[in-house]
Design a protein around this nucleic acid. Sequence first.
DNA 1: CGGCATCCTGGTGGATACTG
DNA 2: CAGTATCCACCAGGATGCCG
Lengths: 138, 138
Amino acid sequence: MSLTDTSKSTNCLAMSDVLNRIGDKWSVMVVGMLGRNGTLRFNELKRMINGVSQRMLTLTLRNLERDGLVNRTIYPEVPPRVEYSLTELGKTLQGPISALWDWSAENHQSIVEARATYDARETAVAAENHQRIAYARG
Amino acid sequence: MSLTDTSKSTNCLAMSDVLNRIGDKWSVMVVGMLGRNGTLRFNELKRMINGVSQRMLTLTLRNLERDGLVNRTIYPEVPPRVEYSLTELGKTLQGPISALWDWSAENHQSIVEARATYDARETAVAAENHQRIAYARG
DNA sequence: CGGCATCCTGGTGGATACTG
DNA sequence: CAGTATCCACCAGGATGCCG
């Protein structure tokens, strides 16, 4: 499926659907972590992913499992042990996600600078408009 | 910046920040559309991106502009004309996004099937538990 | 045409407490 | 340890109406 095919509406729907899952920051983080570390337990993931709540990690993992991207293995021990890893399908996602991750690392600084420039200009424009209003009022 | 560097916390923050913008489905759609069509007007984008509201398209475009990913050109005519296109930085995003788009097209079906399998199993388990409860109650 | 301002609602997700 | 359950605050985002 080449890039030129993406104008088809079916691809928009697929992209939309996929984005609803992997566009989620926690999902990307989980796939990234599992991709690099192979197999991780629940609390290991929780510690590695900064800011994720227990609830969100649980939901994220369930969704990834449901979509066939993550394996969930339960060991019937006491205390319980549950291990997560990427499925073969999940591993194929590593490529695109790595590309995104690398892009972020490379271009984050540019974005931060662009924001600063934009905000400075917006502030200046706002001040100018304020002046105009003052003039109009006499 | 290679994949092995992504365990650094700084990269997690950058990724998180970038994901907040490009993880948004509308942003991805807009970049995709502008990438393939070069320059588009507001209502052209609105027509091409199925389901986007005027408000969300406006906000999405403003954020992309603020992040230095999209150019906004106003032509002081009547009726007004505003054209949008990707900046150089925005164009570099096309690669990662295309990769994601292609992956979606290729693997969407697998995900749909995985969901169906998962849901069928969950339903079966729920039914089984229901049986157990019935037994327990006598 | 290409917005912006306002209102309003549903869902997202955090905090907390409890369980096998 | 690895969840589940419940409550609740917040805000994302749709609908609508007005404007340059």
